[in-house]
Design a protein around this nucleic acid. Structure first.
Lengths: 347, 347
DNA sequence: ATTTTTTGCGTGTGCGGACACACCTAAAAT
DNA sequence: ATTTTAGGTGTGTCCGCACACGCAAAAAAT
């Protein structure tokens, strides 16, 4: 070769296998720099002739249609990188059961994978999984929900605070002086869900920019949203109690549940902002009962998560610690593009 | 092998090189089906040991910042697929000169590339390039502007009609009964620009859904937008002539030029919708002079264009004829995500 | 001073597929 | 009947890299 050494030596330099005289190593590195050498990932993969197992731990999408989307993104990504020897090992947990999360996490770790992608829905249990991964040196990324200050490689998802700000802005378009906006949490145990707190903070911060407009923010929470009759009674009381209610912000993907329980004439009048392009929300969006849906790019969350791990495992490039995905504003007139979008990517 | 033949024969079946007995071919295909065989693109690339030259023909981005974005997407994509032997050969033309387009197209064809990606800004000249490509059998894709019924492999960009509809919807939020919306074309020779016609049609069609609201649509065109004084006079007359003007839709990326010439108090009052995340527009967006920008995903246009050609050249998967990218609604509160978004993709 | 160990480096093989080449057989041409 | 041609098939080399192995020289142990 140019540096007067053989491929074997170059190989040892590249892989830091030691047993190379310092001055030779130096010379090799210089020549590599000079020639702008880059490892050919293609040939490298072929020669490695190994597989990398990526395990995913996500809520069961049969119970919640939202989670079908990250799943689709993951599968798409796996198709893209399959030829590099990436293999998927999916695990699913019941998104209402922390115990099931723990159980499935244990199962996942029985035969430790090379990397993990998961959704840290339950804070305490997720931290346990995180430490297990750290112990075993398993790189991992989180999607959808962020747990800060972890050993995790990256978080890929939305910025909760900013999504609250955005919701504020969108409702503001339709509100007039003196009217009321309702922030509605339809979640079990929402008090300690960090991302809901952030959304609320963002929402309030937005309106605090316009103190002169005297728009009042009302916050309501209701855990029993699974019972339609109870929810209806709850909503009726809210509407009766706030006659000037003209804006509704549902902080998760359950906007449709709220709309389902109020008269269509009221829904048409009130400006509604919700999250996520799931079927029941889309129905209301098309009928103008929901004005805006904020898209969290769930497909991309899954897709990018896998790609990040791929890049990390194959050392092709460093990855960023936090990757906020765009907060897409979706209305009736542009919804189709987001639904139809397929990533036409590699391979 | 399983089918009782050698790799050579299998190779001939895969590449349709003929010289294979029909029944043998049949048997090989069956066995391949049975084993779920898929060509390993990695090994294939390595063995091919060839390069694919993709030529691009785009407006010079030094003259128009918008075009820096497709360019960035192209470069990013090339980085992703470089190891597969994809090489970029970029050509740039003066976006105000059809003659320069023709000249650069000729230069491009001197040494025919394996594929072409271009922006068919000029209809007639683009059709000439298209036929040249067809003659020589060079696959090509178009971005940004669609020319229908061509031999082109694909169009990747926005749906002009629908972007007009969306602009209508966005302005409608801020308009009241009896007010006026202005559709403004700041383009040279806009009469025959197909995409402008489509945008106008979409815009008008949107408002025609609400005849009872009596919102009047005024259309204006001005070619001399490069002369600020002239443009100011033009805008002054428009504002004077339409006292109830509350909405402004600028059909291309020159919204900032219109805003620059009217008083800030007026800009704040009027709802403005424009296109494209370029610096001068962003300034106005942040100062609330522009309410909405519709993002055409120029980065993705370039990125996906290259990926499409890559997929086509390496036969990894078929590509779709038309790929409409999302019409992102961008406001002050979510603009950062679109600006910061980097595709963290393969390699 | 001789043997053993360590260090440093080159060689050889294989990953999965592309393609050139050689070979054999049967049909066509002479 | 012999030669030519075409159809059909197997073999070998190479793509760029990873890794096991082997060998020499230098260092350490005896």
């Amino acid at each position: 070769m140019r540096a007067g050494v053989s491929t074997g030596t170059v190989d040892r330099v590249l892989h830091d296998r030691g047993k190379v005289a310092p001055e030779v190593k130096q010379r090799v590195l210089e020549v590599m720099e000079e020639l702008g050498f880059e490892r050919n990932v293609i040939a490298s993969t072929l020669a490695y002739n190994r597989t990398w197992r990526i395990a995913t731990l996500l809520p069961n999408y049969k119970a919640d249609p939202y989670w079908a989307q990250p799943n689709a993104g993951i599968e798409q990504a796996i198709r893209s990188v399959r030829h590099y020897g990436i293999v998927l090992e999916p695990y699913y947990f019941d998104m209402l059961s922390p115990a099931d999360f723990v159980r499935k996490a244990a199962k996942l770790l029985e035969n430790p994978p090379d990397a993990v992608l998961f959704a840290p829905i339950f804070l305490k249990e997720s931290n346990e999984l995180l430490s297990s991964c750290e112990e075993r040196g398993i790189p991992n990324v989180m999607i959808n929900t962020n747990v800060e200050n972890t050993s995790s490689l990256a978080y890929i998802g939305q910025d909760s605070y900013q999504s609250g700000v955005l919701a504020g802005r969108l409702l503001h378009f339709g509100l007039n002086d003196g009217e009321t906006a309702l922030l509605l949490n339809l979640e079990v145990g929402s008090h300690n869900a960090l991302h809901l707190i952030d959304k609320e903070r963002g929402f309030r911060d937005y309106f605090s920019r316009f103190p002169e407009e005297k728009i009042s923010i009302v916050k309501a929470e209701f855990e029993g949203f699974m019972d339609k009759r109870k929810l209806r009674r709850f909503m009726d009381e809210l509407l009766a109690g706030h006659p000037r209610l003209q804006g509704l912000f549902v902080t998760n993907s359950r906007a449709y549940k709220a709309i389902d329980t109020i008269p269509e004439t009221v829904a048409q009048r009130i400006k509604v902002v919700g999250f996520d392009l799931i079927a029941p929300n889309l129905n209301h969006l098309k009928r103008n009962n929901i004005d805006f849906l904020i898209n969290q790019n769930p497909f991309e969350q899954g897709y990018l998560g896998i790609i990040f791990l791929f890049n990390h495992l194959l050392k092709t490039k460093p990855v960023e610690k936090v990757q906020y995905l765009p907060l897409d504003i979706v209305v009736m007139e542009n919804v189709d593009y987001y639904l139809r979008r397929q990533k036409e990517l590699i391979v």
